[in-house]
Design a protein around this nucleic acid. Structure first.
Length: 414
RNA sequence: CGGGCCGUAGCGCAGUGGUAGCGCGCAUCGUUCGGGACGAUGAAGUCGUGGGUUCAAAUCCCACCGGCCCGACCA
């Protein structure tokens, strides 16, 4: 893609209404824009990152046997009354239509997916069932904060599993844990699994936390035996309950949370099946959340430097940032421009994701700064230094390492 | 929802009673181009909203709206 087609506009100054580093960088680099407190628009660059994160998640969900669906965000009051959560779910965003009908804007989808599953699940032969979606969620947060980390509207993947019995739920739950770690590995996001409150339905749930000082969750961890619990449930903050070693206090961003719901939602909706012996039995459920937009924020929060964002290759909006450095000599500059355009065409032909900074009215210094700010993994430069021997300079955004190789060699090994 | 800070040009800010200015950005022209270039010219603001005080309000008073931070909250 050409920068001149992207409407690339970066900001030199930090927006004054954002103090979180993830929001500051994402806004300055033109990935997102704030509409109002806790609500953001995703711009072309930001949407590319969102799609890449979604694709990684989608692939793993499919590996776990998930069938992708898309449920309604607008949910009738009745379903929420059925689980008694219309009144008890504090962050439920309620809207009334002009015809006096009340709805919830979905913060989660147990109230929709459980009755939906009744359509599929009649017999033990219909189980297990795994349904997931990637969708915009709403939560009426009293105080949104930290940029993309705590918003009123956000993109989330939610997977729901349905089982014949608790044993099957338990074994699938363990599979999902492994799947989650595969996702975080591809995102190059260091994540720790933490025991957290299981709510009213089970002793624990499991959270996946990225450890960083700017995280809002507090975690206690035993480096000796691996015991890790969220501060909200831990009983003894000094000593590990298993091995008595001293606990370490950490801060984290929650980037995933999985629950064993068991029959909590199957009961109120009467989600049952007929077993092999002809007996009616209750379905066991699990639910597994993963915040897509929050992951984008967490990546920005954890992976950046003083010059800007540093995206892992798997989610970067482009793999390469290509720019010509002009010399002031008209004839030489013509050949530099041509070589850059040629390289761009060759990369496009090979379906390589490249941003060609062809902007005419922008100085080289500004382009170099933008390349860093956008966090594209590799920067390609053609200049008077490289043009002589038909080479291209490649800089690794993360390590800062620069090497110069022949354009032909570069294209061959791409 | 309690406490604090803030709201002036697209963005960042100055202006504490006499009707608005700076930097960046934007437009035109020229010179530039290895880390946010330079000169010249120019466009752009119901000073968050409503009310009050005053001869006169961005400035003082009241109410409301919006944003940020701390806390409470976070199936």
């Amino acid at each position: 893609m050409k920068a001149s087609d992207l409407h690339l506009k970066t900001l030199k100054e930090v927006p004054k209404d954002e103090s979180a580093i993830n929001a500051q960088l994402l806004i300055r680099a033109g990935f997102i824009e704030k509409l109002t407190s806790g609500v953001y628009n995703f711009l072309p660059l930001g949407l590319k990152v969102i799609y890449k994160i979604e694709d990684i998640i989608r692939t793993e969900m499919n590996n776990l046997g998930g069938e992708e669906i898309l449920m309604a965000a607008l949910q009738p009051q009745k379903n929420w009354e059925q689980t008694k959560r219309w009144k008890t779910f504090n962050a439920l965003l309620k809207v009334k239509s002009q015809y006096e009908q009340w709805y919830a804007l979905g913060p989660t989808h147990e109230e929709v997916v459980t009755p939906l599953a009744k359509q599929f699940v009649l017999s033990y032969k219909d189980l297990p069932l795994y349904l997931y979606q990637i969708q915009t969620k709403f939560r009426d947060e009293p105080r949104p904060k930290s940029g993309l980390l705590r918003t009123r509207e956000f993109i989330m993947k939610d997977l729901y599993s349905f089982h014949r019995d608790e044993k099957d739920l338990d074994s699938y739950y363990e599979k999902v844990k492994k799947g989650y770690f595969k996702i975080y590995a591809q995102l190059e996001l260091p994540v720790m699994m933490v025991e957290a409150s299981g709510g009213t339905f089970s002793k624990y749930s499991h959270e996946f936390q990225t450890i960083t000082e700017s995280g809002e969750d507090t975690i206690y961890h035993c480096s000796h035996c691996g015991f890790t619990q969220n501060a909200e449930i831990i009983e003894n903050k000094k000593q590990c309950p298993h091995c008595k070693h001293q606990l370490e206090k950490l801060k984290g961003i929650e980037v995933g949370n999985i629950f064993k719901l068991k029959d909590k939602y199957a009961q109120p909706f009467g989600l049952t099946y007929i077993d092999f012996h002809g007996h009616k039995r209750i379905v066991m459920m699990g639910c597994y959340g993963l915040g897509v937009s929050r992951l984008m924020g967490a990546l920005a929060e954890v992976s950046h430097d003083q010059h800007g964002l540093i995206w892992p290759a798997a989610v970067a909006p482009f793999k390469y940032y290509l720019l010509p450095v002009l010399s002031g000599d008209k004839k030489l500059d013509q050949s530099i421009k041509k070589a850059t355009t040629d390289l761009y065409q060759d990369l496009i032909k090979q379906k390589v994701e490249v941003l060609y900074d062809d902007r005419q009215d922008v100085s080289t210094g500004e382009k170099l700064n933008d390349a860093d700010l956008l966090g594209v993994p590799y920067r390609l430069i053609i200049s008077s230094r490289t043009i002589k021997n038909k080479s291209v300079e490649i800089k690794n955004r993360k390590t800062g390492l620069i090497k110069t190789i022949k354009i032909k060699t570069f294209l061959k090994n791409i």
